[in-house]
Amino acid sequence: MTSLESRSHAVDDDAESAVKQIPPAAVARLTIYLRALTTLLSEGTDRVSSESLAEASGVSSSTLRKDLSYVGSYGTRGVGYDVTYLSRHISAALGLTHDWKVAIVGAGNLGKALARYGGFESRGFDVVAILDADQMVVGNEVGWLRVSDATNLEQVLQRTGANMAVLALPAAAAQDVCDRVVAAGVRSILSFAPVTLQVPDDVNLRKVDMATELQILAYHAQRAQTPQKSA
C-alpha cells in the first residue's frame, strides 16, 4: 500500500470514527457546508476562506471552524480551504462514501416527486425502487423506475440491495410497512407518514412532518407580527 493510500485509509477511518462523536446540530450544518462546497466546485472554485464559506452557509466563522474541527482542520491561515479536499472529508464523515440504495414505499404524489428528484444521485443516494399496494399504480413508470407491487416488498429490497427506505404512506399503513422493512434488514428509514412509528433501538428512523413544521412556522410568524408587551 502506498503512503497516499495509507493516508486515504487513515482519513476514512478517522472520519468514520469521528462521525459518531459529532453533535446532531453540527451534523446538520455539515450537510449545509457540503452543499455550499458542491456549488463552489461547479463554479470552478478551488479554494475558499472560512469567512466566505460561513457566509454561503448562513453561519458564523467561529461556528464553521468548530464544526469542521470534528472532521479535522484542513484550512490554511491566509489561504483558506481546498474545496475538493474539504468536500471529500465532510462526505466521508457523513458516510456518503458508502453505497446508499434507497427504496421508496408509496407511489402517490409525494413518492413520485421524490423518485423523480435529481438531487439524490449527486449527493450519494441511488433510488433503486418504488413500490405501492395499489394495483392501478403497479407497473406504471416513474422516472426511470417501474412501480413494484408492495406485496413483494421483501423480495424487491433483497433484489435491489436497498439499505435505506423512504415511507411516503398514509398513517394507517405506515407501521405495518415499517415493520416489514425492518424485518427485511433495512436499518435506516425516513418517514413522511403523519404518525409516530415504533422501531427497534438499532434502527435509525427520522420523521418529516410537513404539517408540524408549518405549524411551528406559523407560531413564529405570528410572534413576529404581534407587538411584544414590555415587561
Rank of each mutant, 00 (worst) to 15 (best):
M1V: 03
S3K: 09
S3W: 05
L4M: 13
E5M: 09
S6H: 08
S6F: 05
R7N: 11
R7G: 14
S8C: 09
D12S: 14
D13Q: 15
D13K: 14
S17Q: 10
S17R: 15
K20C: 03
K20V: 03
Q21Y: 04
P23M: 13
A25H: 11
A25E: 06
V27F: 01
L37T: 10
T39S: 03
E43Y: 01
G44Q: 04
R47C: 00
A56K: 14
G58K: 01
L64P: 00
L64I: 03
S69M: 07
G72H: 12
Y81C: 01
V83Y: 08
Y85A: 11
S87A: 15
R88D: 15
R88S: 12
S91H: 09
S91P: 04
W100A: 04
K101S: 15
A103P: 04
A103Y: 12
G108T: 01
G108A: 05
G111A: 08
K112P: 01
A113P: 02
L114D: 06
L114Q: 00
A115T: 10
S122L: 04
S122G: 09
D126K: 12
V128M: 05
A129K: 07
A129Y: 08
A133T: 11
A133V: 15
Q135L: 14
G139K: 08
N140C: 12
V142M: 12
W144M: 00
L145G: 02
R146T: 15
S148H: 15
S148P: 01
L153W: 04
E154H: 08
R159N: 13
N163S: 07
P170L: 08
A172P: 01
Q175V: 11
V177D: 03
D179T: 02
D179H: 02
V181D: 02
A183M: 03
A183Y: 01
I189W: 03
S191Q: 04
P194Q: 08
V195H: 06
V195C: 10
V195I: 14
V195W: 05
V203G: 02
A211Y: 09
E213N: 02
L214F: 13
Q215R: 14
Q215K: 07
A218M: 14
H220K: 10
Q222S: 15
R223T: 12
A224T: 06
T226Q: 10
P227K: 13
Q228C: 06
S230W: 07
S230L: 14
